[in-house]
């Protein structure tokens, strides 16, 4: 177990270094965006003096490295700066939005992960049957359609033709939990359709990959029924690749929601990011990107730890 702690600490260290590198890239990329915020805020009619004054006020007259270091120093103290557009504290602006995005992601994951596992196991169990083929075709169709398209199709059939669920996902902080689930049903389903195929196919492939192993043959020769062979003998050895794909898709649920949030007008972090880019609200853009990067790094770390924990050779040393 001490080995595991050491690995986690080491990977966390690497994660921090990666995050630092990513922060430089984000800052650089934002720097490269054309146009000038002061000019944009003040409009065409502004005089050169007022523009210069506003730039000085926002600190835009300093050199990029200087501004990067100042920003980084703030981030380390939990201060993401002030939104240039709304003058609000970035952290307080992002906080509720991010928790909305997390809620949607968890909602979708709670449906998608068990569904994908179940379909993957069943497809491996009845491989090459009509069920296997239908699942493959269905999930592949879902993943091949762009998510805004899937979203609109769901709205068309489940909100307009049959008004079962609300088409808009506007939520308020004091909304009841069940009401929230109802409002978010369509965006969550859209996400489920988008991520299930990948996880399901990996589960199926990882299990089928193991079916030729001598220990699977041994289990069969011991008279173990087929479903137990799959669930008890193949699945525990297939965790590592499955966990990796699940982590990747969970990260996507958080960072890839931009389009879905826009379609359903859901006040999540993706919408905030899009709004901030159009407004050239650099501090908000940078903070959002940093949160996305951290999400990826943390989930990948979790996948690595999961893969280690699922390997008995690493869990139980000689």
């Amino acid at each position: 177990m001490n080995d595991l702690v050491a690995i986690v600490v080491k990977r966390l260290g690497f994660g921090l270094v990666t995050l630092l590198a990513v922060s430089i890239i984000i800052f650089g990329a934002v720097e490269l965006l054309p146009g000038d915020l002061a000019q944009a805020v003040l409009g065409q009619g502004a005089t050169e003096e007022t523009v210069r004054e506003l730039r000085a006020q926002l600190g835009l007259d300093r050199s990029p490295p200087e501004r990067y270091l100042a920003w980084l120093g703030g981030v380390f103290q939990g201060d993401f700066g002030q939104s240039l557009a709304s003058k609000k504290d970035v952290a307080s602006l992002i906080g509720p939005r991010f928790s909305n995005t997390l809620f949607l992601a968890l909602y979708a994951a709670a449906i998608a992960v068990p569904l994908a596992m179940f379909l993957g196991i069943a497809a491996a169990l009845y491989r090459n049957s009509w069920f296997d083929r239908a699942t493959n075709v269905g999930t592949l169709t879902a993943i091949s359609s762009p998510e805004f398209f899937v979203g609109y199709i769901l709205i068309l059939f489940l909100a307009i033709k049959n008004p079962w669920f609300p088409a808009l996902s506007n939520v308020t902080p004091d909304m009841a939990f069940t009401e929230r689930l109802n409002r978010l049903f369509l965006p969550a389903m859209t996400m489920v359709l988008v991520v299930t195929a990948h996880m399901m196919r990996m589960t199926r492939a990882a299990i089928i990959n193991l079916l030729a192993s001598p220990y699977i043959e041994m289990a069969r020769l011991k008279g173990v029924p087929q479903y137990k062979v799959i669930v008890k003998h193949a699945l525990p050895n297939a965790w590592a690749p499955i966990i990796n794909v699940v982590a990747l898709n969970l990260a996507y649920l958080i960072t890839g929601v931009v389009l879905v949030e826009v379609v359903f007008v859901y006040p999540g972090i993706g919408q905030l990011l899009v709004d901030s880019v159009t407004k050239r609200d650099f501090p908000v853009v940078q903070a959002c990107c940093l949160i996305f990067a951290a999400t990826y790094i943390l989930l990948n770390l979790a996948a690595d730890v999961g893969a280690i924990v699922s390997n008995p050779r690493l869990r139980h040393r000689k």
Binding site: P214, Y215, R220, G223, V224, H233, N237
Partner: peptide, 24 residues
């Protein structure tokens, strides 16, 4: 057949290292 396998006819494979499930 499953009722016979393991119960009345058993199998010992060439490589025990590969034929024992590493996870159990």
């Amino acid at each position: 057949l499953r009722k016979l396998r393991g119960a009345r006819i058993a199998y010992v494979a060439q490589s025990a290292a590969a034929s024992f499930n590493p996870s159990h």
